[in-house]
């Protein structure tokens, strides 16, 4: 009961203290706001870039051409064998008849030529469209498919895919690195600003010690104060993320420059990002004040 009462008072006093030391609190809060805005932008950018890369990677398909004289039964066996391989996401069969139809629909010239083909004269091949789970191993998977009895040739854009994957890998690492570095810088900046806020209250800590407050009793209100500063500082970045990104998404109809580059749908993405920002603000705020108070409790 006693501890609950003390904790209740600590929370109340730390809240009051944010407003009583308003100018310094404002300095801390604006520092948190600005750094978290930068963090927010970098998170939104990096996740979108990664999302784009993943979408493109998922789109890469191994087209497996079967020999022209393959029977329906053989096709079923081949399909089962492909599905048995590791790293297979999906297998879709595309018969030469359906390919012919596609071509005929696409152009009248093709239609004229293809209509003249007799039964059994169709020179096209049955194909399997294979998607892989991990694009890094697409080459090996393609080789394995090629070795299956009845498969004539496989195509997946060898060379170009590897390059693309390599570039995406670098982009991913850079964006993650930037986000992590920014969060660290933020933590450092915020905790230093809070440290200044608290240094100005050395006297308060001294008096608390003097009247018999235990070290933990002294720390807790300051840690809560850090929590409040962090939470207040996250408000603007959170709102900016939620409304800013949603507005941007609507403005560009969910795609950037071309339908090829798709933006992430705002909900729940913006809410998750906002929560992450709040989390960073609060944790860094608490950590900053804890670090600052600790300094004055050593005598």
């Amino acid at each position: 009961m006693k501890q609950v009462r003390i904790l209740g008072r600590d929370i109340r006093d730390s809240f009051k203290s944010v407003f009583r030391n308003f100018s310094l609190s404002l300095a801390s809060i604006s520092c948190i706001t600005i750094t978290l805005l930068v963090v927010a932008i970098s998170i939104v950018l990096s996740i979108n870039v990664n999302n784009f890369a993943t979408l493109v990677e998922k789109d890469v398909t191994i087209v497996t051409f079967l020999k022209t004289d393959t029977t329906d039964e053989q096709i079923k066996i081949i399909e089962a064998e492909i599905k048995d391989l590791d790293n297979i996401e999906s297998v879709v069969f595309n018969s030469k008849e359906s390919i012919t139809e596609e071509f005929m629909e696409a152009s009248d010239t093709y239609k004229k030529i293809m209509e003249e083909w007799e039964e059994g004269e169709n020179p096209l091949q049955d194909t399997f469209l294979v998607k892989v789970k991990d694009i890094n191993y697409i080459g090996e998977t393609a080789k394995k498919i090629e070795q299956i009895e009845g498969v004539q040739v496989v195509k997946y854009g060898a060379g170009m895919v590897e390059q693309l994957v390599g570039v995406f890998e670098i982009v991913r690492n850079i964006t993650y690195g930037v986000v992590v570095a920014l969060i660290l810088v933020t933590a450092f900046l915020i905790s230093n600003t809070i440290k200044i806020t608290i240094s100005s209250r050395k006297r308060e800590i001294e008096i608390m010690r003097l009247v018999g407050a235990s070290n933990i009793n002294i720390k807790i209100p300051f840690i809560f104060e850090g929590l409040f500063l962090g939470a207040f500082g996250s408000i603007i970045p959170m709102v900016a993320t939620i409304y800013g990104y949603t507005a941007l998404y609507n403005r560009f109809n969910g795609q950037l420059f071309s339908p090829f580059i798709k933006l992430i749908v705002p909900s729940p993405f913006v809410y998750q990002t906002a929560l992450i920002l709040l989390g960073i603000g609060i944790i860094v705020g608490m950590f900053g004040s804890w670090r600052a108070v600790r300094k004055y409790l050593k005598i």
């Binding site: 008072r9 006297r203 009247v211 407050a213």
Partner: peptide, 22 residues
């Protein structure tokens, strides 16, 4: 060594609050 931003009452009460009295 008084807390300049607290009232007389709060300054004195401060010494009791650390004990968790009602």
């Amino acid at each position: 060594k008084l807390l300049s931003k607290s009232t007389v009452y709060e300054n004195v009460a401060f010494a009791l609050e650390v004990f968790g009295l009602p």
